[in-house]
């Protein structure tokens, strides 16, 4: 028995290692690439032995890209800032609009509530490009094209349904009696929402916010169509590395590493809210 269980343990570890290796390898490879020049990257056969260089990061941060064809201006750092601003702004607006809406959909059964909630979800059914073409014309007419405001508005198509549907479920999971108890104790409905419903739905809000941030961060097509160079996020900005003299793999890799960092930081920060149990011990049990 002992031997088989040891064997089992070893096999399990090997299996887990393989899975991790499979998923982490591309990221690991990208991190390696970001410390190499294009020549070492394109070496045949590839090797993980190389002399690390920070030139890719320096190029991105200073905004000057040296290629064989000459010096190119890249505004990667401003792209990164745009991504951060657009994603954070969209999630903030999405939370401000989505949480009260989710509470209303979850708690108050009003005429047509299900239909409205479903309509909001259906925004995500259509291929983005199909929505974007008419939107572009509207936006140009009313002067919203190529503005942060306009972009954050369009980003609501991505973040709002997500936040609404995730948070709504969490609100529905809070036993209504807990809120009734707070009302009966003498608190207004708004204070009940703020002091009882919101804290209890916090894990859901954190999860929805994080997910919405990732979706907004990774969005490509909306910004490509609706924004010009100075408003573009990293996803669109990375196209600049496809230059006349070839693809700058090193800089692309360094750009990816830099653009992973904010999401990673946010995920680590949100983790403590994610793990907190919902209504553990609230009712009998």
């Amino acid at each position: 028995m002992d031997q088989t269980s040891t064997l089992e343990k070893v096999l399990r570890r090997v299996a887990i290692s393989l899975v991790i290796l499979f998923f982490m390898f591309p990221i690991f490879w990208i991190v390696l690439m970001s410390f190499q020049t294009n020549e070492t990257i394109l070496r045949v056969p590839p090797s993980i032995v190389f002399e690390p260089t920070l030139s890719n990061y320096v190029a991105l941060i200073t905004g000057r890209l040296e290629t064989q064809a000459g010096t190119l201006e890249v505004n990667f750092m401003s792209n990164l800032w745009n991504s951060l601003f657009l994603s954070a702004g969209s999630v903030a607006v999405g939370l401000i609009l989505g949480i009260p809406a989710a509470y209303a959909f979850g708690r108050i059964k009003f005429r047509g509530s299900e239909d409205i909630a479903f309509t909001l979800l259906s925004f995500r059914f259509a291929p983005p490009l199909l929505v974007l073409l008419p939107l572009t014309i509207y936006f140009q007419k009313i002067g919203l094209a190529d503005t942060y405001f306009g972009l954050i508005w369009v980003y609501q198509l991505i973040v709002l349904p997500l936040i609404l549907w995730i948070v709504r479920g969490y609100f529905e999971d809070i036993p209504a009696d807990i809120e009734y108890a707070y009302r009966i104790a003498g608190h207004s409905w708004f204070s009940t929402f703020r002091k009882v419903a919101l804290p209890l739905a916090m894990p859901g809000i954190a999860a929805a916010g994080l997910l919405a941030f990732i979706f907004a961060w990774n969005n490509f097509i909306f910004a490509l169509v609706l924004a010009s160079a100075d408003k573009q996020p990293v996803t669109v900005g990375a196209l600049a590395f496809v230059t006349a003299s070839g693809i700058q793999y090193g800089q692309v890799a360094a750009g990816i590493v830099l653009s992973i960092l904010p999401t990673l930081a946010l995920a680590l920060y949100a983790q403590r809210y994610l793990v907190e149990g919902l209504s553990l011990g609230a009712v009998k049990g």
Binding site: D177, I178, L278, A282
Partner: peptide
């Protein structure tokens, strides 16, 4: 409810977790 001046205990306790 908050203006009725009532105290209530619930069967499932309904404590604020």
């Amino acid at each position: 409810p908050e203006d009725r001046g009532i105290g209530m205990a619930f069967q499932n306790f309904a404590l604020f977790p």
